[in-house]
Amino acid sequence: MKVFICTFFMIILWAAVPVWGQEERPGENLLQQERIPPDFTEDIQDWQARLELARLLSYVERYEQSITHYRKVLQEKPDLIEARLELARVYYWMDETDKAEELFASVPKDRLTGEARLELAEIYAMRQEYDRAVEVYEAYLQEYPGEARVRFRLARVLSWKGDYQSSISEYERVLESRPGDNQVRRHYAQVLMWAERYDEAIEELEKTLGD
């Protein structure tokens, strides 16, 4: 009966609550990017124009074209880490995770941006290489312990690998900083269910109903 109640709650709430942590599209930062003045003392080079074009094409989801231009940029500027990382992101968004991982791996670890590390962890999670994903998230959280969004992802991966107790602990830490986040609470309840702690799961699901 408890399982039935929990499942019923989950179905209702799943449909009702918007998804938290919706992924950004590649090139999402195009509109908000910091306006660093280009140096107009020299003419803009082809690769500079092509890089901007590749970014824009990825933003408008013309991924194949975007890849072509990123590749051309990298032919001219093979050491341009930002192009390499951005191209990896495009592959990641196209679900070509092998190519994305290959590119991420080609970047020295100390040059990987925070976002790139998180995407790499997502790739590991997608491939069910949960231990590797957990390792990346934990390393990231050591540097940025206040990143609830990343802790949430860690909690999810821990639950997928069956480590419910650790997952629950991480969810509790997320909820400490985001007590009103119903989506996190809903996931938390789900893990409580998987851990067969049905009473607590029901309690948590009831909280998400509000008044």
Binding site: L30, P38, Q48, A49, E52, L53, L56, L57, Y59
Partner: peptide, 26 residues
């Protein structure tokens, strides 16, 4: 002038006029 076109494409991108910006890069 390439530099002016480059800046124009950047401004158009910021304004959400993506196709125009793409054509300028082209």
């Amino acid at each position: 002038w390439r530099n002016a076109l480059f800046l124009k494409a950047g401004i158009l991108t910021g304004l959400g006029e993506f196709e125009k910006a793409i054509n300028i890069y082209g």
